[in-house]
Every structure is written in C-alpha cells, then in structure tokens.
Amino acid sequence: MQCGTCTGSCGSAARMEHTPRQLWRMVQAGMKDEIFKSRTFWLCSSCYYCTLRCPRGLPLTDTMAALKRVAVAEGYTTDRKSAPFYKAFLDSVRKYGRVRESEMMARYFLAVKNPAVPLSFVPLGMKLMARGKMDLHMPGFGGRGKLDRLYRKVMELEAAK
C-alpha cells in the first residue's frame, strides 16, 4: 500500500531526501545502503501524525526510531549531529539519573568536534543564564553513574534476545 498519508502528514517531509512513503518502500525493497546514507529518518520529530492517520494502522513513528537504532548500532555517520546528541543525552542520564542540560550540551559539543556548533548556542545560553535557568556543570567522565546498573542490565538483556 502506497497511499502517501504518512508523507502528507509529515511536517519534515519537505526537507527529507526521501519522503516517508518512499522510505517505507525502500525498506520493503531492502535498499539498506540508500536508506542509511540518507538523513531522512533523523528528521522525524516523533509528532505521531503518520501513526495516527495510517489507514493500515502501522507503527510508523516507532519504525523511524528503529531505523535510528540501526544507524547508531551500525555506525552510519551520514548525519554527524544526531547520534552524538542522543548519546550525550543518554550518557548524562546514565551518570546523574536526570539530564543536566548544560552538562549534556557540553558532552555533545565535545563529540561533534565542530566549533561552529557550540557557538550557535551562545545566544540561548546567555538568555537562560541571565534568568538563572541553566545549571552549570562540566561533564564528569569516569566514576560511577546513578543508572549504571540499569543500563548495564538492559544492554545485557537486549544482547540475549
């Protein structure tokens, strides 16, 4: 079925290399290389419009997430920002239990290794700091993390599946 309701409902479709409708066909056709050399699935904002409207009731948003997981697991780096950002986020959570926004962003900046990226966040950082809405923490690497045991067990269970 190629009705295109997903594409018509997607706020990101206009900026994707392949529209969602095309992407799902590519998945069916097993065009792995083309899919993961594109950034299409990283442009999914998880708005769930496609999932809501799909006449087949397919879990399309969850499937976008599955593509993100494959890209991370297999080390595709077409998109240089997304995987490092989500990793920084999850590392911050593992360490402290709760995201420390400034610490998470510092991790992200270190990972992307592009000075233009942190610079683009300076204006927002200044506004937040002026209002006392930013916690200032530098990343704490090493040492034990609040959620180490949970993360470790989850990875162990995932590997055993």
Partner: peptide, 22 residues
C-alpha cells in the same frame, strides 16, 4: 521520590528496552 529521566526522544535511538525501562 528519587525520580529519574524518562529517556525523552533519546533512549529510543539506542535501545527500545531502555526507552521503556527508564
């Protein structure tokens, strides 16, 4: 008491199980 992060949109990019366990 002692709540921790829900995983936001990040956990699901790493592990589906983590995105539910968090």
């Amino acid at each position: 008491d002692d709540w921790t992060c829900c995983g936001a949109s990040a956990a699901d990019t790493s592990s589906r199980l983590l995105s539910i366990a968090l």
